[in-house]
Amino acid sequence: MNSPEPLVYIADDDEELCKSLAWLLESVSIPSHSYYDVASFLAGYDQDLPACLVLDVRMPKAGGFQLQETLNRIASPIPIIFVSAHGDIRMSVKALRQGAVNFLEKPYDPQHMLDVVQEIWTWPRNASKRTAGGVK
């Protein structure tokens, strides 16, 4: 039996950004699922699939940090790549200390995003949570 193909979850309230990132990932045969709010992501998230999460910091209602806290509480193994148009050093340090693997500013370089995602796929499937700054 083949193991499932790695998946990228995208959680961002910017629909155009989600479509653009999904297209970018598709261009190199990486499947993705987009969600425009935290509740929709949680309803569609399958913790058993090999995946990573590209997560916006600021979203209506619950934001990225709240979702990160929820995923940490349930001991989710999903690596998180934060993205933000309004990020600062304090925000990125907080994200990384809580287990995120990277923090990218919007607009991000498309090739750098692909590099970060593809680096995650080289990790062992059941590796323990990454330390801050696990992906350069």
Rank of each mutant, 00 (worst) to 15 (best):
G63Y: 02
T70Y: 09
S40D: 11
A75S: 13
L53R: 03
F65D: 06
S40Y: 01
D56I: 02
L42T: 06
Q68D: 06
D48H: 14
K94A: 13
I81E: 01
G44A: 05
K94L: 14
I78P: 05
A95Y: 10
A85C: 01
Y36E: 15
S92Y: 08
R90F: 09
K61E: 04
V38R: 01
S29M: 06
S84K: 14
E26S: 15
T70I: 07
K94Q: 15
G87P: 08
L42Q: 13
A75V: 07
L67W: 01
E26C: 09
P79K: 11
E69A: 14
G44V: 04
L42I: 15
T70M: 01
V28R: 13
G87K: 09
L49E: 15
L49F: 08
Q66W: 00
I80Y: 00
S27W: 05
A62D: 05
D88G: 09
S76D: 04
H86P: 01
A51K: 13
D56G: 02
S34F: 12
P77V: 10
D37R: 05
G44M: 03
I78F: 08
L25C: 07
S92F: 02
S76T: 07
E26I: 03
R73D: 15
A51H: 08
L71S: 01
H33D: 09
H86M: 09
Q66L: 00
S92R: 09
L42V: 15
S27G: 12
I89M: 14
T70H: 09
P50S: 12
I30Q: 12
C52M: 14
L49Y: 08
Q66V: 00
V38M: 03
P60M: 02
V54T: 06
Y36C: 10
V54W: 01
P77Y: 15
Q68K: 00
S84T: 15
S76N: 07
M91H: 10
P50G: 13
Q68I: 01
F82I: 07
Q68H: 08
F82A: 01
G44R: 08
Y45M: 02
Y36A: 14
P31M: 11
V57R: 05
P31A: 10
A43M: 06
I89F: 14
P79M: 08
V93P: 03
S29W: 03
M91D: 11
L25I: 07
D56Q: 04
S32R: 05
I81K: 05
L49G: 02
G87L: 09
S92M: 12
I78M: 12
T70A: 03
L67G: 00
S40R: 12
V38A: 04
